[in-house]
Structures are given as structure tokens and as C-alpha cells.
């Protein structure tokens, strides 16, 4: 299996551990993946607020590059906001007038977009392109005894969800079970993490993130598939604790980090040390703690 990869801004910086663990896991599973060259920001939640056209032109620029480089390969996005924006641009391209307008803009970059490239969420690829027996066959260190709370967030499954349910997604369950972990289900697996509110309206943002953290807290860790979700749940737990009036401390990891852990990959690929809330207690549980 061959894919192109759109990292997006976060997977290159704050969520580097998501990228390295993803690459390690896909390699183990025998997939080939190549980073899209010359990519630029998808516009995040900001492009569409600056203007309708900018909101589709920024992702379309990257899709045009992917068409050129791709040979029909699908484009993987690990960030749910990137994923949504890229799919939105493909959606917009189905309308001839809007595709023409996008291309008028892309002319200045010497690019043309046809609307042919298929963007997949990394979770979709991990859950659907490999059968669970293949995943199981690579498990060297089963996550037995580890309870994981899946957290999908919003844009992973909304508004586009060709691979899972909008409100009650289950894609992570079969992966986590294949790794030997137990799944802790809760009511906030697909509610929003609060996104930019943690910066712009902290009172509201911390309460929203707090609800998810509290619902997950019986588990040993939370598994995420989006850098924004991850940042909001991992980075502000002390502030959230103050708002909730009780201490919250739960490691928040990326799903490929857990997969890589079970596959026996090295810390230099998994980079658990980068997490803001220490993953040590959870690593000790599966006998993988280091110094």
C-alpha cells in the first residue's frame, strides 16, 4: 500500500510524536508513505473565516500538489481539521463554477486542481486498510491490563465520515482490542475538545475539556487521533483541575503511539517523553517504563 502524507502545521511541530509513531506503525504494517512536498497550511479554522474562497483555496493548493505528485495515491491527513478542510475543497470542486474559481486563484501558484484526489483520515486508514489479524500478528508486547478511553473529537467524524458514525464512532475499538487493551467507553468520545476556546475563552474551554477528561478518568490513558484534541486535553490539565475543583491527571497519547508500543517500537520513534502529562504510570503497567 502506498500513500501520500499531508502533515499539516501541528504534526510537524507540537505533535511531532504523532508523526514519528505513525510512520513507525505504517512501516511495520508494510505500507509506504511519502510526505507531500511544498505543502502549506490548510487554513485551519481560520481560512473560511477570512473568506469563503480562501477557505477552499488553501486546502485546494495542497490537493493540486497531491494530484501532481500522487499517481492516484490517496492523501493521508492525521489532523482532523486538515482532513475536514481538504475534503471540503474536494467537495467544492464538484461544482464547476466553484472549481473554476479555485483554479483562477491557484494560477498564481502555477497549479491546477481537478478534484480527483481522495483524502483519508489516518484513523480510517489504520482501522480499514489492514485487517485486525495483521495488526495482531505484529503485537510483541500486548497491552494487557491497560484500559484506554478512546477520544475521536469532532472533525474526525463530522461533517465528513465516510468510515464511521457521526456521533457514535467505533473505529478505535477494534484496533485497541487487537492490541490487547481494554476499552473504557464514555459519553464524550466524539464531543468537541473546545478547540480555540482554550485560548480565546478559557473559562468555557477548560470546562468543555474538563468534561471529557473527567469522563475518561477511570481509564489509564486517553487515545487521540488529532493534534488539536491532543493539545487541549494534554496541556491544560492543571488549569482544568482548578476549574473542576478536583485533580485530573491522565496521560493523553496518540493512537499510533499505543500501536507502536504494542508492536515493540523504540521510544525514539514513540516519543512518549514529549507528553505534558507523564505517560510513566501507564508504561509501567505494560512493563515498558524506562528510566
Amino acid at each position: 500500500m502506498k500513500y501520500l502524507f499531508y502533515p499539516g502545521c501541528s504534526m510537524e511541530t507540537s505533535a511531532l510524536e504523532y508523526t514519528t509513531s505513525m510512520l513507525g506503525v505504517l512501516k511495520t504494517l508494510g505500507a509506504e508513505i511519502e510526505e507531500l512536498e511544498n505543502w502549506t497550511c490548510c487554513g485551519a479554522s481560520v481560512g473560511a473565516v477570512m473568506s469563503d474562497l480562501l477557505g477552499v483555496v488553501l486546502p485546494a493548493r495542497n490537493l493540486a500538489l497531491a494530484e501532481k505528485a500522487g499517481d492516484g495515491r490517496e492523501l493521508i491527513a492525521g489532523c482532523s481539521a486538515c482532513y475536514t478542510n481538504l475534503r471540503k475543497a474536494t467537495e467544492a470542486a464538484r461544482d464547476r463554477a466553484s472549481l473554476a474559481k479555485i483554479n483562477q486563484a491557484l494560477e498564481v501558484e502555477n497549479l491546477a486542481f481537478r478534484g480527483t484526489v481522495n483524502t483519508r483520515h489516518l484513523l480510517d486508514v489504520l482501522a480499514n486498510d489492514f485487517d485486525m489479524d495483521t495488526i495482531k500478528s505484529h503485537v510483541k508486547r500486548p497491552l494487557t491490563g491497560l484500559t484506554v478511553a478512546p477520544y475521536y473529537g469532532c472533525q474526525t467524524v463530522r461533517p465528513y465520515s465516510p468510515f464511521d458514525d457521526h456521533n457514535h464512532p467505533t473505529s478505535m475499538v477494534r484496533i485497541l482490542e487487537a492490541l490487547g487493551a481494554k476499552v473504557h467507553h464514555h459519553l464524550h468520545e466524539a464531543t468537541c475538545c473546545g478547540t480555540a476556546l482554550l485560548t480565546t475563552k478559557p473559562e468555557a474551554g477548560f470546562t468543555i475539556a474538563g468534561t471529557i477528561l473527567e469522563a475518561s478518568s477511570p481509564a489509564d490513558c486517553i487515545a487521540t487521533v488529532c493534534p488539536m484534541c491532543h493539545m487541549n486535553l494534554d496541556s491544560y490539565q492543571d488549569k482544568v483541575s482548578k476549574v473542576l475543583g478536583k485533580t485530573i491527571s491522565i496521560p493523553v497519547v496518540f493512537l499510533p503511539q499505543l500501536m507502536g508500543l504494542a508492536f515493540g517500537l523504540e521510544e525514539s520513534t514513540l516519543l512518549f517523553k514529549r507528553l505534558m502529562v507523564s505517560a510513566k504510570p501507564m508504561l509501567e503497567r505494560v512493563g515498558a517504563a524506562q528510566g
Binding site: S45, A48, R158, P159, N167, C192, T195
Partner: peptide, 22 residues
């Protein structure tokens, strides 16, 4: 609008199919 996190809950739930988040 400034408290909207662009989570698309309302848009996918609206029984009248209105693109609310957009």
C-alpha cells in the same frame, strides 16, 4: 459565533438539514 468551536454537532443533527456550522 465566538463561542462556536466549529464542531459540526448542530449541522449534522439539524432535522432540516441546514448547514449551520458553515
Amino acid at each position: 459565533m465566538w463561542l462556536c468551536t466549529v464542531c459540526y454537532e448542530c449541522q449534522v443533527s439539524c432535522p432540516r438539514g441546514i448547514p449551520l456550522t458553515e
